[in-house]
């Protein structure tokens, strides 16, 4: 199962960035697939990107809401919110654990040997602040003379955009070097901070700053796919917590807002059969291996 998940993450990253003609065209992919929102965080200005970043698209629509309404186009992001809501209703935050290219990057970087530190729980609520403020409020309310807002999260925060689009485009289009200013160096600094943090802590961007993960997390308790915790079988051995890429204490309850349904707790951690999942209310129970089940809870 861990190998399968890694392969799915790699294939998803490859499919999300499958346009390898960009060194010849010197531009980004402009085909019809760009009208489809990718389930994970993948900047649509990345030269190889084949789909749209749902967060970038949502901010763009909100930033252009007033001019669009004035022009008689009532675009409020129903297509994007509907797409994210549909995915969330089916599997909750599972795309973060199985499909997101930036999630894969964080897991790989975290393998670099170093002292490891836990992220304080209070910081994990910051992603909701980013979601409300940088995706909805600021793009809608801070407008220029022509009533257009800005894509605040992309412009000032998103390290994925810097890594996947900002830096590659500088090499692809050397003329852009003249446009580099303080903002670009600020975003490079944010990227650097997150890369160092990825080495030290488990998936820091997903847990602290990702508005996409914040949106999916609302569905974790109400999705078709849900995790189940059997408190009678649980011994609180903390093995699930030690192996969890999001640092979740599963024994404190299933379907917590940061659970990305990677199933590491189920397949690689719990020896007591305390963790399982259900699909549409039907429990899927994995039998405990006989040798390990012989270990009795203390």
């Amino acid at each position: 199962m861990p190998v399968l998940r890694r392969w799915i993450q790699i294939v998803s990253t490859a499919l999300s960035n499958a346009y390898w003609m960009f060194p010849h065209t010197k531009g980004i992919y402009q085909g019809t697939l760009k009208s489809i929102c990718a389930p994970g965080l993948n900047c649509y200005s990345c030269p190889a990107a084949t789909g749209s970043c749902p967060l970038g698209s949502l901010q763009s629509i909100i930033a252009g809401l007033r001019p669009a309404v004035k022009a008689g186009h009532y675009h409020f992001g129903a297509y994007i919110i509907g797409t994210l809501g549909l995915i969330g209703s089916l599997v909750g935050r599972m795309p973060c654990g199985w499909l997101c290219p930036f999630g894969l990057l964080q897991e790989l970087i975290h393998k670099i040997p170093s002292p490891k530190f836990e992220i304080p729980k209070i910081l994990t609520y910051m992603k909701y602040l980013f979601l409300i403020l940088f995706i909805f409020i600021l793009p809608a309310l801070v407008i220029d003379d022509y009533s257009y807002g800005m894509t605040w999260f992309c412009k000032f925060i998103c390290p994925a955009g810097t890594l996947e689009a900002g830096v590659p485009l500088i090499f692809l289009k050397p003329e852009l070097k003249e446009l580099i200013g303080v903002l670009f160096y600020f975003k490079l600094a944010i990227l650097f901070v997150f890369i160092v943090w990825m080495i030290l802590s488990r998936r820091p961007f997903c847990r602290v700053a990702c508005p996409l993960g914040a949106i999916y997390s609302f569905f974790n308790k109400h999705s078709v796919f849900r995790m189940i915790h059997d408190s009678e079988k649980c011994t609180h051995c903390r093995e699930c917590y030690n192996n969890c890429p999001m640092g979740i204490k599963f024994y404190k309850g299933p379907n917590q807002h940061d659970c990305i349904r990677c199933l590491k707790c189920l397949n690689e951690s719990c020896r007591f059969g305390a963790i399982s999942y259900e699909i549409a209310g039907m429990p899927v129970i994995k039998p405990v291996e006989p040798q390990k089940s012989a270990l009795t809870p203390p």
């Binding site: 402009q30 009208s35 200005s45 629509i61 903002l183």
Partner: peptide, 24 residues
């Protein structure tokens, strides 16, 4: 969203390099 024509709006934004969005 499809009925309101949002798909083409998403496409329109995504096929252009948004320099502002990536900090350039």
């Amino acid at each position: 969203g499809i009925n309101l024509g949002e798909v083409s709006t998403v496409m329109e934004k995504a096929i252009k390099i948004c320099l502002d969005c990536i900090g350039i």
